[in-house]
């Protein structure tokens, strides 16, 4: 059996170093723990379905987990949904703990996890929501039509995000949302290969 691997791109390594440079320890934890909870959710679902995680990749676009085996459409959907579900659970727990202990960084972490989970549920590849949509639409409509639907949905969601981000930028609220929209516009993949392979983010 092929051994599982961890890949970290140069871009991801530089981004991590930049975060270590800029953020305090608590801020770093506030950011890392939600991401860890999210990915652990995916991993737990993969293992629960008796599948083998093959590769964990970290890049500038985010994290992705590649797994071997075919648990069927519902299994793939469950694996994709497990990440945001774990993130929401973490958000609730961190919020409770943060407010009861007076640790503001935990409340920040809860907010980050909430944002991350909801964002990942957007129906746009390569996000988890896009994965769910691609699996369900491929099962319902066939791969070709399913891929087309996913592409249209992705472009629509990305365009709306970019437009909202543009408005926020013009109002002096920063470029973050605009950059996210542009990232989704050009960063998504809707090839049949991705729908077939077990890759989730």
């Amino acid at each position: 059996m092929k051994e599982s691997r961890i890949d970290v791109s140069a871009g991801a390594a530089l981004l991590l170093a930049l975060l270590v440079f800029l953020l305090t320890g608590e801020e770093l934890l506030a950011l890392v723990l939600p991401a860890a909870a999210h990915e652990l959710g995916h991993l737990a679902a993969i293992l629960a379905l008796g599948l083998q995680p093959r590769r964990f990749s970290a890049s500038l676009g985010g994290f992705s987990l590649d797994y071997a085996g075919d648990p069927g459409t519902l299994g793939h959907v469950g694996i994709a949904a497990a990440g945001p579900a774990a993130g929401l659970l973490y958000a609730w727990a961190a919020s409770r703990l943060g407010t009861s202990s007076g640790r503001d960084w935990l409340c920040l972490s809860a907010g980050i996890s909430l944002l991350l989970s909801l964002f990942n549920l957007l129906p746009a590849l390569p996000l988890d929501g896009g994965q769910i949509l691609s699996r369900l639409s491929a099962a319902a409509l066939g791969e070709e039509r399913g891929t087309r639907l996913c592409r249209i949905t992705q472009l629509t969601v990305a365009a709306l995000l970019a437009a909202a981000g543009g408005i926020l930028l013009l109002r002096g609220k920063g470029a973050a949302l605009l950059l996210m929209g542009i990232g989704l516009l050009f960063g998504g993949e809707t090839t049949p290969g991705l729908v077939k392979k077990g890759i989730i983010r």
């Binding site: 958000a91 609730w92 961190a94 919020s95 409770r96 943060g98 407010t99 009861s100 503001d104 935990l106 409340c107 920040l108 972490s109 809860a110 907010g111 980050i112 996890s113 909430l114 944002l115």
Partner: peptide, 13 residues
């Protein structure tokens, strides 16, 4: 803003 959302989760509960 994000920290306020985090606190709000506990508030809702």
């Amino acid at each position: 803003t994000v920290a306020a959302w985090g606190r709000a989760l506990a508030g809702q509960e």
